[in-house]
Design a protein around this nucleic acid. Structure first.
Lengths: 347, 347
DNA sequence: AAAACTTCCGGTAACGTTCCCAGTAGATGC
DNA sequence: GCATCTACTGGGAACGTTACCGGAAGTTTT
């Protein structure tokens, strides 16, 4: 009684064999249209719902996909998850979501769970440095996020940090901040090197000495940004100071430090963030920032995964462009005279 | 070659029958410890990984659970998801996560997907008013969130709004704001009525006329809070004004409106939020708010689900207490003289 | 020493689905 | 009128696992 109806029940109800019932329900062309309708009706009245476990067993396609991210609670990763969810859903499949907390053991356990669930594919932000873990993974996958760079041979999705940094710098220069200070992440992070390298290149192209830029180290937290900004303000006690922060949390912390030091944003300091976290929209002033296309990254990762599974050609690592979102944390100083002389040949 | 090893491969490798191999791997007591070890070793060298689809088919337990929430991108629901994820994971199962976008059709499609995946149970924030949808759902489930109140007969988890409102009001009174203004959600929402009722009760207990409170309607957005606060400021152009907002987004919007009107928070206005969104920590001043125990709600929902499935006794609707988190958006006016007279008999 | 019991193992069926093969009936070709 | 073809249908096997049953040893009881 409590038993869920199977295709055999449907077949019996429709007066056909289970093979025919299956064919009718899978839109196979080899079935009479009248019978199909009869079966459909029977399936409906019986309240039949195809058992995906059985389908998966028989066909090898479980209709399940996996997503392993550091923390679903982090707004960036939540957006990624949403993007992946949407694409996976559009393809009639479902998404298993796991949070690794940047922990190797948790990650390993999640990957095992994915294998056991016989997911058809997975999207992973790797915490592990060990390529072998994924070589042996045994499931098609794509990597996502900047840490994926450690695996150059694997298809992966990331944001285009170089483009993003140039975008920010261009905007800063346009507003009259040709030599912004930098608050970067920890030296251990790969993203830091890339950020810094792009800044250097950009400076050299503008005939600006990169060594002239003030640089502070920080971790990627609000508190870290707060402390770094205090150091920066001490180094430059007077005059307007523009700061390009490696992420939005740092930027928000920097903003608070400035205010508490009596240097008002954007009057006395200009602050540019990087990430596009929602909190930046609610700060005062609103945080101008470079927004990573988080949801689109999730979407594209899922699409790349489907491509890979279908055997369609892959294009290795995909870098998605970032977007400048202007709010109120940048002052427009106008073009600055001394630097304009140096840059005049270019513009 | 690319075939995943099955338990038959393991059995062959270990020189036993597949029944014995299965027994050894499922920690059944009916197997010699030496054989078990032999099988374990064989399983390891073969790289065997139990096929959960097959297990699910045979045993009826898929190891899958479902979560249907409005939007994983919403920090509140992300926390809920994380809590559910943790408990489900601790029980060796995996979680399928869906976003309904408050859309009936999407919700229905997700519920269908859950049935087809043969999830063992589901946690749902219902957008549908229709109890029948869930009566026919055919899968054990618990509801979560305030909208679950429409289904009094179903086990559900929510936050204790009455307790939360009292907590906020007590704190406001303590700080010298005995008659705070209210910015509420739309009249259609159930949560609004509950909020308002509790405020009334609290007022009557303090011999305060509830009719004396300023009330503004809004939707649950930043912009809505901004507009409502403008109306409020127009009605009370001078003097300190305290506002209890129905959610944090409203509160953040109200804060901006006040600042733009030249009324500084917390000097000229006191603003109390409700929800505990992360953005509240980064605003200026930091938003004092009532935090809903989002992650704990997710955890408890999952635990209640396991209880239900195991046939353990259920205790119907569970209301989890909220917590006051003090940041800087409330002024301490001290106890206010006229009201202290009225309330002296109580304290 | 036979009986009863314990311990361990192998064979088989079943879960629900899809795929392959064979088969039937009617239509078409010569 | 027989062969061939088309359109559709039914039967059975298989996917990988666990539950059940029966049996072969060895151990204890009477």
């Amino acid at each position: 009684m409590g038993r869920r109806p199977t295709i055999i029940d449907v077949a019996r109800l429709a007066g056909v064999s289970k093979s025919t019932a299956a064919r009718a329900l899978t839109d196979s062309p080899d079935v009479n249209e009248a019978t199909r309708e009869k079966v459909r009706k029977a399936a409906h009245t019986a309240g039949y719902e195809r058992n995906h476990l059985a389908v998966g067993m028989r066909s090898g396609r479980s209709g399940l996909f996996g997503l392993v991210i550091p923390d679903i609670t982090n707004p960036f990763w939540a957006e990624v998850a949403r993007g992946a969810q949407d694409i996976v859903g559009e393809n009639g499949a479902s998404l298993l979501v796991f949070s690794s907390d940047w922990d190797h053991d948790r990650e390993a356990a999640h990957l095992r769970a994915l294998r056991q669930a016989r997911v058809e594919g997975a999207i992973i932000n790797p915490v592990s440095d060990n390529v072998d873990d994924f070589g042996r993974f045994g499931v098609p996958f794509v990597l996502i996020g900047s840490s994926a760079e450690r695996f150059p041979d694997t298809p992966s999705i990331g944001s285009d940090i170089a483009q993003a940094v140039r975008l920010g710098l261009d905007h800063l220069v346009l507003l009259g901040h040709p030599t912004p200070a930098l608050i970067l992440g920890p030296k251990s992070r790969l993203a830091r090197a890339r950020f810094l390298r792009t800044v250097h290149e950009h400076c050299l192209e503008r005939d600006v000495d990169p060594g002239a830029l003030l640089v502070e180290d920080s971790d990627y937290t609000f508190e870290g940004g707060y402390a770094a900004m205090q150091r920066l303000l001490a180094r430059r006690p007077i005059g307007h100071i523009a700061v390009f922060c490696a992420n939005d949390l740092i930027a928000l912390g920097a903003m608070l430090a400035a205010r508490e030091a009596g240097r008002e944003c954007p009057r006395d300091v200009s602050i540019l963030g990087f990430d596009g976290v929602p909190a930046g929209a609610f700060s005062w002033p609103g945080l101008t920032t470079i927004e990573k296309p988080a949801r689109e990254m999730g979407r594209r990762a899922a699409m790349a995964l489907f491509d890979e599974i279908a055997g369609r050609p892959q294009d290795g690592r995909i870098y998605l462009p970032c977007r400048l979102v202007e709010r109120g944390s940048l002052a427009d100083l106008g073009a600055q005279t001394p630097l304009r002389v140096a840059g005049v040949g270019r513009s």
